[in-house]
Structure formats: C-alpha cells, structure tokens
Simulated assay, not measured.
Amino acid sequence: MTERQRKLLHLLTRAYIETGKPVPSSWLAGKLGVSPATVRYDLADLEAAGLVEKPHASAGRVPTRRGFRQYALAQLPPQPLPHETLERLMRVIAHSGSHWPQLTAQMVARLSGYPVVVRLTTPPRAEVLEVHLSDLGGGRVLAVAVLAGGLLLEGVVELDRPPEAGFLEQAERWLHGPFPLAELSARPAPSPQLEELARALVRAFGTPRSERYVEGLGSMLGEPEARDPEFVRRTLDLLETLPQTPVTPAGGLDVRVGETEGISLVQAGFRRAGRTGEITMIGPLRMRYRQALSVAHSFSHALEGEPHHAG
C-alpha cells in the first residue's frame, strides 16, 4: 500500500464512521486534491487487497472488516484526553471510595458514547478487613465482609439457635482483620459457637467471583446497526460471554475488530487497590476508534493514579 493509498483508506474510513454512507470517489478526490481517475485506480487496488468494497447498487465504497482494523491500529498509540480532564478524572476517582468501579463505567460510557463493561478480578489472596453482623431473628444473621480494595461480600448465616446477647459483638471483634479470606474456617476459635459461625460464614460467602459493571447499553440501541435484530442479539451474547474471557493485562490496550461479526471492542487493562481490572467499550465496526482508544487509555492511567501526557 502506498502512502497515498493509506491516506485514502483512512479518509474513506473516517467519512464512513461519521456518516454511515458509502463514500463516493469524487468526494475523496476533492479532499485529497488529486484527479477522480487517480482515486478510482487507488480504490481498485484497495479493493483487490480486501480493504474496501463497493456495496450493491452503490456509487461509493465502504471499509471492510480488514480495512477497519487497519485504520483502528493506525490510531495507536492514542492521544490522551486533555490534561485538565485527566486531573478532574483522577480527583473524582480518588474521592469515590468503594464506588469507583461503577463511577468509572458511567464516566467512560458518557465520554465514549458506547456501552461499557468494567471488570474486576478478585485478588488470589483476598484479605478480610472486618465483618459486620446483624441479627435478623430466628437464628438468621446478615453478614457483610469488607475486603481489602473495597470489595464487599454479603450472605445470610443460619445458626442452630438465636445468638445470645453480646455474641455478635464478640464475633465482630474476633473477625476483625486483616486475615486471608481463605483461612476463615481455619482460624482458632475461642468457643464452639464462634467455630460454628466461621463455618457458616464460609458457606454464606462462597468463593469470591469477579465483578462486572455495565453502563450505557442504551447507547448501542441508538446506532443504525441496531435496526438489525441479529446485531442486537450478538451484542447481548457478547455481554454474557465476556466474563469468561481473560482480562487485558494491566497497562495493556487492545482493539478487536469484527472478531464477533459486526462488532468491535476497545479494551484497556489496569491495576488498582491490588486488583486487576479491564475497561471494555463495545461498538459496531463503524466505531469511533480514535475517541474510544483515547478514553480507554486515559482512564486506565487515571485509575492507576498516573497522569499521562502526549509524547
């Protein structure tokens, strides 16, 4: 591919992303300042390379999946968001407490205009900081464990008999951490009642799983592609299967074009509060890759508390 053909492909792709309509060669010629014949020859080469195609009964061209991918990869490394915006993001995240994953998903969806999934993995050695116990009556106790990094585990414990006065306060003092969650049932208990409670807590909490926060799904329904029920179905299926895939490594940035038919993903990995996470934006092939990559890249740095500048 010549440099002129590369510029032609990128110009055509940007125009198609903005309009959703096939791009005529006359318009491309005017933008590039070359003759229509030159553009037609270059388009023929790009078509032969599988980068553009001519829709049926149309005078213009559109990018193929391969053409979109070539364009998307050309946006790497992305330009970060403005410095002032990054500083505001870092301040908001720093003061959001344990709600930072939900807030991150909301802000990314708002800035990108695409559905967003924020995934967090559970640390392999989760640490319990404290456990809060509330008597529900009839031997039932609501237990909420606070783990390092802000993760909460909640469950209802069934005891053989209602707890005696002062027992829950004693249990909370005994359960004050930090200590590994995996060792909860093995902790030396000063009484049979506390030993029974520990076993019940292990059953109630189960095995911590990865967390997932989804925001902005309605924005996908506003895309022209959503008029196709199959596109909507594939998007929803992708949301269901995404938790089964490995997260992008911290500091990593990936763009996946058309691996699921008609759908693209922009993903950025990060590490925060001892946990590995991932931001995923979901869009059609006609995704605004430059903007999406910029937002994903900038947020991953903001979550790690690192300002990032161009260059």
Results as ranks from 00 to 15, higher is better:
R6Y: 00
K7Y: 14
L11W: 06
L11Y: 01
A15M: 13
E18C: 09
G20C: 07
K21V: 14
P22K: 06
V23M: 07
S26F: 14
S26E: 13
A29F: 02
G30H: 11
K31E: 13
V34L: 11
R40S: 10
D42P: 00
D42G: 08
L51T: 01
V52T: 09
A57C: 05
A59S: 12
P63T: 01
T64N: 04
R65V: 03
G67C: 02
F68W: 04
Y71G: 00
L76H: 00
P78A: 06
P82H: 03
P82W: 00
T85P: 01
L86A: 09
L86W: 01
L86D: 02
E87V: 12
E87A: 13
R88I: 12
L89M: 11
V92Q: 11
I93A: 07
A94G: 09
H95R: 12
S96E: 13
W100N: 04
W100L: 09
P101W: 00
Q102Y: 08
Q106K: 11
Q106H: 11
R110P: 07
G113M: 03
G113S: 05
V118A: 04
R119K: 09
L120V: 05
P123S: 08
P124R: 10
A126F: 04
A126Q: 09
A126R: 01
V131F: 05
L133V: 03
L136T: 09
G139Y: 02
G139M: 05
V144K: 09
L151A: 14
R161A: 14
P163T: 07
A165D: 14
F167G: 08
L168Y: 04
E169L: 11
E172H: 03
L175A: 05
G177H: 01
P178H: 01
L181S: 04
A182Q: 13
A182R: 12
L184G: 01
R187M: 03
P188L: 05
P192G: 06
Q193D: 14
L194R: 04
E195D: 15
L197M: 11
A198C: 15
R199H: 14
L201Q: 08
L201T: 03
R203L: 15
R203F: 14
R203H: 15
R203T: 15
A204H: 12
F205I: 08
F205W: 14
F205S: 06
P208E: 02
Y213V: 02
G216I: 02
S219R: 10
M220A: 15
G222T: 08
P224M: 07
E225G: 09
A226W: 05
R227G: 11
R233E: 12
L238R: 12
E240G: 13
T245P: 07
P249M: 03
G252K: 08
D254G: 10
V257N: 06
G258Y: 02
G258N: 04
T260R: 14
E261D: 13
G262H: 02
L265M: 09
L265I: 05
Q267C: 04
G269H: 01
F270W: 02
R272K: 13
G274L: 03
G274Y: 08
E278R: 01
E278N: 03
P284H: 10
M287R: 07
Q291A: 14
S294Y: 08
S294T: 07
S298G: 10
L303Q: 07
G305W: 10
